[in-house]
Simulated scan of single mutants.
Amino acid sequence: MLNFYAFFGGTFDPIHYGHINSVKALANELTIKKITFLPNHLPSHRIPSKTPSYHRLKMLKYAIDNDPLFDIDFREFEINHVCQTVKILKKIRMELGKKTSIAFIIGKDALFDIHLWYKWQDLLKLCHLLVCPRLNFSHKNYEHSTKIWIDKNRIYNKDIIFNKSHGYIWFSKIPLYNISSTDIRLRINQKISCKNLLPDNIIQYIDRFNLYCNS
């Protein structure tokens, strides 16, 4: 078995229980002891967040504070330009070496658009992909080149993730958490309660800084 590192990328705008509970369930499913959040500063494949990066990062810190499962990699915030995921993973691979298993966690919704990512077909040369379920997303409905790529590299034996350094796609069977940052921002803008959708301290932070009221 190789040394293993799991990274969870995203804008986390804001971080919510869909993020937190999904990766906790994934950690339980695969017996992962540590998951590192890799927050985007200036994402390359989606519309930039209107929320200042330091607010998103603060909320992420508060949400996972004192949870031994989680930590944060701040590297994207040290670069003041758009960061492609492939380039970030290349740096991580260089740091951790060739004989380390690296996994990158994404949702099925992100996988749906992965053909729009910079050098997306190079991702599996650097890591495994661990895919969390999302509502109304089936890989059978993906863009044709994406579906071929998924079918070619999908695995059903989770042990491969820990014995190979990269190259495979695992579809998690964890519960579906139907919570989205987009819906939360809309609810806040419409003054609808977000109780039980994200941690109370994050709700308080959003109220304190009047975030998402004009989203």
Results as ranks from 00 to 15, higher is better:
Phe4Asn: 02
Tyr5Asp: 14
Ala6Gly: 07
Asp13Arg: 00
Tyr17Val: 09
Tyr17Pro: 01
Gly18Ile: 03
Ser22Gln: 02
Val23Pro: 04
Val23Ala: 00
Asn28Glu: 15
Asn28Pro: 04
Leu30Lys: 11
Ile35Pro: 01
Thr36Tyr: 12
Thr36Arg: 12
Phe37Gln: 07
Leu38Lys: 03
Pro39Val: 12
Pro43Ala: 05
Ser44Tyr: 11
Ser44Val: 08
Arg46Leu: 13
Lys50Met: 08
Thr51Lys: 04
Pro52Ser: 09
Tyr54Asn: 15
His55Ser: 04
Arg56Asp: 06
Leu57Pro: 05
Leu57Asn: 08
Lys61Val: 15
Asp67Trp: 05
Phe70Glu: 11
Asn80Gln: 13
Cys83Pro: 05
Thr85Asp: 06
Val86Asp: 05
Val86His: 09
Lys87Ala: 14
Lys87Arg: 07
Ile88Lys: 02
Leu89Pro: 02
Leu89Val: 12
Lys90Thr: 15
Lys90Leu: 11
Lys90Ala: 09
Ile92Arg: 09
Leu96Tyr: 06
Lys98Phe: 04
Lys98Asn: 11
Lys99Thr: 10
Ala103Glu: 00
Ile106Ser: 03
Ile106Pro: 01
Lys108Leu: 06
Asp109Glu: 07
Asp109Phe: 02
Asp109Lys: 00
Ala110Ile: 10
Ala110Cys: 10
Leu111Asn: 01
Asp113Arg: 01
Asp113Trp: 06
His115Leu: 02
Leu116Pro: 04
Leu116Tyr: 02
Trp117Gln: 03
Tyr118Pro: 03
Asp122Thr: 13
Asp122Tyr: 03
Leu123Gly: 05
Lys125Cys: 10
Leu126Asp: 05
Leu126Glu: 04
Cys127Ser: 14
His128Gln: 09
Leu129His: 00
Leu130His: 02
Val131Gln: 01
Leu135Asp: 13
Leu135Trp: 07
Asn136Ser: 10
Phe137Asn: 08
Asn141Val: 07
Tyr142Glu: 00
Thr146Glu: 00
Lys147Thr: 08
Trp149Thr: 00
Asp151Cys: 06
Tyr156Asp: 14
Lys158Asp: 13
Lys158Gly: 06
Asp159Thr: 13
Ile161Asn: 01
Asn163Arg: 12
Lys164Ile: 01
Lys164Ala: 03
Ser165His: 03
Tyr168Pro: 12
Tyr168His: 15
Tyr168Lys: 12
Ile174Glu: 06
Ile174Thr: 05
Tyr177Ala: 02
Ile179Cys: 06
Ile179Gln: 05
Ile179Tyr: 01
Ser180Met: 09
Ser180Val: 11
Thr182Leu: 08
Thr182Ile: 14
Ile184Gln: 04
Asn189Glu: 12
Ile192Val: 14
Ser193Asn: 12
Lys195Ser: 10
Asn196Gln: 15
Leu198Ala: 04
Pro199Tyr: 01
Pro199Glu: 03
Gln204Leu: 14
Ile206Asn: 05
Asn210His: 15
